[in-house]
Design a protein around this nucleic acid. Structure first.
Lengths: 353, 353
DNA sequence: TTGTATGCGTTATCAC
DNA sequence: GTGATAACGCATACAA
C-alpha cells in the first residue's frame, strides 16, 4: 500500500461520512455531487462538454469539500506534468536570470511551473541535471549549453521537447532561439575602429559557449582589417578583475572588448584601482547590457541582448513543441550596440600616462 | 485508460518480449532479473536489505534495459516528490537569486529539485503561486514574503513544511531564518553619524517587507539622537533614480541611506548625471552588498547580507522539516556594514555647491 | 452527454 | 530476505 494509505478511509459503503482528514479525492466529489468521477474529471479539465446542471453540482460539491485535483495523480495518468525545466550555465549572471524571470512569467500564464537548475559551467553537471529535469518536466530549455551534440541527443532521446537558446544547432530534432552575436559584435568593433583604435585586446569567455565563439569570430575578423588583436581570458566571476587588468596593461592596447558585461565591469573596477582612466587611457566594451552597466562610471558601452524577446520566443517555441509542433524551428534575433561613455578615442601617443 | 496506454504492451503472458518502445517499467526489470517488483523497488530505494545476489541481478537487468524509476509514479505512491518550491518577491534583484543559486545547489546535493516562482511584489500573486507550488512540492521556502499571516496559515494548512526567510513570524507552525537588519542598519548609521552627518534621507523599500520595517526602525531610532531624517520612497527597479535624485536634493540632506543596493546604485547614477559628487556632496549607503556595488564609482558603502549562510541555514532547516522535525525553529544571522567610498564627511557649509 | 472500467508505475503492507 | 498485491488519485477509451 502507499504512504498515505488510510487517509481517506470509509466513503464507500456507508455514504461518505467516513474519515475526514486529508484532501478530498475526485471520488468523494463525485459522490457528493451525485455524478461519476469521469464527469468531475471532465469539469475540472474542461476536456469535454458537460451539461450546465452537472457542472454546477460538481462545482458546488468541490467548493464545499475544498477539492483541488491532485497534480501528481494527474501527471501519472495523463503523462503530462505541466512543468518545464530550464538549465543555465551560471545563475549568478544577470543575463541568465533575466531570461529565467521572463520565461517564468510566460510559462505561469499558461499554467506551467518551472524547475530551475544551474550547471556552474560544468558540461558533466549539465548532462546530469538535464536528464534529471527531463524525468519531471514536459520539456527542457537549455540556455547557452556547454556540453556537446552527444549530450543533446541523449536529452532528445528522452522523448520530450528540447529547446536550445543561444546555441546554434543543426540537428532537426531540436528547435532553437539564438541571438546573432556576430553581427552585433562586428558593429561594436566598427565603433571602436571608427574612433581610431588599432590595437585591441579581447577577453575570451567560456570556450564551450557558442556565443563566445561567435563573438570571437567577429573580433578576429578585424585582424584582416589590419587591427592588432591580443587575446586574454576572462572568467565568469566578478572577482578576477585584477589579474586581467594587469594582463591588459601589459599588452599596451588602447581598447578592450570583453566577452560579457561581467568581465568588463570587473575590469573597469580593477583599472580604476590602478588609476587607469576609462575611456581616456583605455576604452572598454562589454556584451549583454545587464542593468548595472548603466550605473558604472563611466556607463558601459555594450551590446544589448534582447532578453525579453529571447524569452518570449523561447516560451512560444516551447509551447508549440508541447502542443505537438514539429521541432527544428530556428528563431534568430538581432542585437545592437549601445554606445555609452566607456569608449572614446585612443590616447594620442604612447606613454602619455 | 491512460495517455501512454499501449506503450508497454505484452509483457505478461508471453514472457516480456512484447512491445519494445517507451521506457522500461519496474515490472520488466523484475521479470528480466527473475525477481519480484518489490525487490527491484527495494534495490533502487535502498529501503530494505536485499541479498547481494539479487541486487546484482537487478542492477544487471536494469542496466541492460536502461531502466530508471518513473519519478511521477514514485511520487504518487510515496506521497513525496523530492521537489521544493522557492518563492521570491523579485527575481530581478541579485539579492534573491543569490539565495536561489545556493539553495539550488544544496538541495541538488540531497536529491531535490527546485521549483522557482516570482511574485513581483504582489501579495495576491504570492498567495496563488505559493499554493500552486505547495501542490507539487514537499516544502516551500518563502523569501521575504509580502503577504500576511492569513496567507501563511493557508500555506501551512496544505500540510507541508513552510520556511520563512527574512520575515519574522511568531506562529510556532513555521520555522524561520532571518538576518538581523536592525543591528546592522544601526551600525551603518552610526558610521554616518560618526562622520558628522546630522541630516539624513531614508529611501523606503516595499512597505510589506519585514526587512524594510526593521531597517526603517533602525533609521528612525536616530531621530532620538537629534538627527533629522527625511523619508523618501525608492522602488524595486533600477529605473526610478531620477525622480528620487531630485527629491533627495530637495531635502538638503548630507547623506542618504537607501533601503537596498538597487536603490542606492540607481540614485548614485542619477546624482552623477546631475553633477552631484558622491561622497563629497552627499554620502550614499545601500544594503545587501550585491556584487555590483563594489564596481560602482565610488564603491558602495553597504551592509553585507550573509546570503551564503542564509541559504545554508534555510536548506538545513528545510531538510530537517522534510525529515519530520518539529517546526518552529528560529535562526537569526547577523549582518555587518561594509564601509567603502560612497560615504564621507558632510560638506562643510550649506550652499557650497 | 454520461458512466464504467482499466491502467499509469510505483511504494509499502503483509505473509511467508 | 523475498514475493504477491492493494492502494496512490486521476484520465480516458469505450459503451451506453
Amino acid at each position: 500500500m502507499s504512504g498515505q494509505r488510510g487517509r481517506n478511509a470509509g466513503g464507500g459503503a456507508t455514504g461518505g461520512d467516513g474519515a475526514r482528514p486529508g484532501r478530498p479525492t475526485i471520488r468523494q466529489v463525485a459522490e457528493a455531487a451525485g455524478v461519476s468521477v469521469a464527469t468531475v474529471s471532465r469539469v475540472f479539465a474542461g476536456s469535454a462538454a458537460v451539461s450546465a446542471e452537472l457542472t454546477r453540482r460538481v462545482h458546488e460539491a468541490a467548493g464545499r469539500l475544498g477539492y483541488a485535483p491532485h497534480v501528481v495523480a494527474q501527471s501519472l495518468a495523463s503523462g503530462r506534468s505541466n512543468i518545464i525545466g530550464i538549465l543555465v550555465p551560471n545563475l549568478a549572471n544577470p543575463h541568465f536570470y533575466s531570461l529565467i524571470k521572463y520565461v517564468l512569467h510566460d510559462a505561469a500564464r499558461d499554467g506551467y511551473q518551472v524547475l530551475v537548475a544551474d550547471s556552474d559551467e560544468s558540461p558533466a553537471a549539465e548532462r546530469e541535471l538535464g536528464l534529471s529535469l527531463l524525468r519531471r518536466a514536459d520539456g527542457l530549455i537549455l540556455s547557452a549549453p556547454r556540453s556537446g551534440p552527444a549530450t543533446f541527443r541523449e536529452f532528445v532521446a528522452e522523448g520530450r521537447p528540447v529547446l536550445m537558446v543561444d546555441r546554434k544547432i543543426d540537428d532537426p530534432v531540436m528547435s532553437s532561439v539564438v541571438v546573432d552575436a556576430f553581427g552585433a559584435m562586428r558593429d561594436l568593433l566598427q565603433h571602436l575602429a571608427g574612433l581610431g583604435h588599432e590595437h585591441l585586446a579581447y577577453l575570451h569567455g567560456p570556450a564551450r559557449s557558442w556565443q563566445e565563439q561567435e563573438r570571437w569570430r567577429a573580433v578576429r575578423g578585424f585582424r584582416r582589417q589590419g587591427l592588432r588583436v591580443d587575446e586574454l581570458t576572462a572568467t565568469e566571476s566578478l572577482d578576477d578583475g585584477r589579474r586581467v587588468a594587469d594582463e591588459v596593461l601589459a599588452t599596451g592596447c588602447t581598447a578592450v572588448a570583453a566577452y560579457n558585461d561581467l568581465a568588463a565591469i570587473s575590469l573597469v573596477g580593477a583599472l580604476a584601482e590602478r588609476g587607469i582612466r576609462v575611456p581616456e587611457d583605455v576604452s572598454v566594451t562589454g556584451y549583454d547590457d545587464i542593468p548595472f552597466g548603466r550605473f558604472m562610471a563611466p556607463p558601459l558601452t555594450t551590446v544589448r541582448a534582447p532578453q525579453r524577446d529571447v524569452a518570449a520566443a523561447a516560451w512560444l517555441a516551447m509551447r508549440g513543441l508541447l502542443e505537438g509542433q514539429r521541432p527544428g524551428a530556428r528563431t534568430v534575433l538581432s542585437a545592437e550596440p549601445v554606445i555609452r561613455r566607456s569608449t572614446g578615442a585612443p590616447r594620442p601617443a604612447a606613454g602619455a600616462r
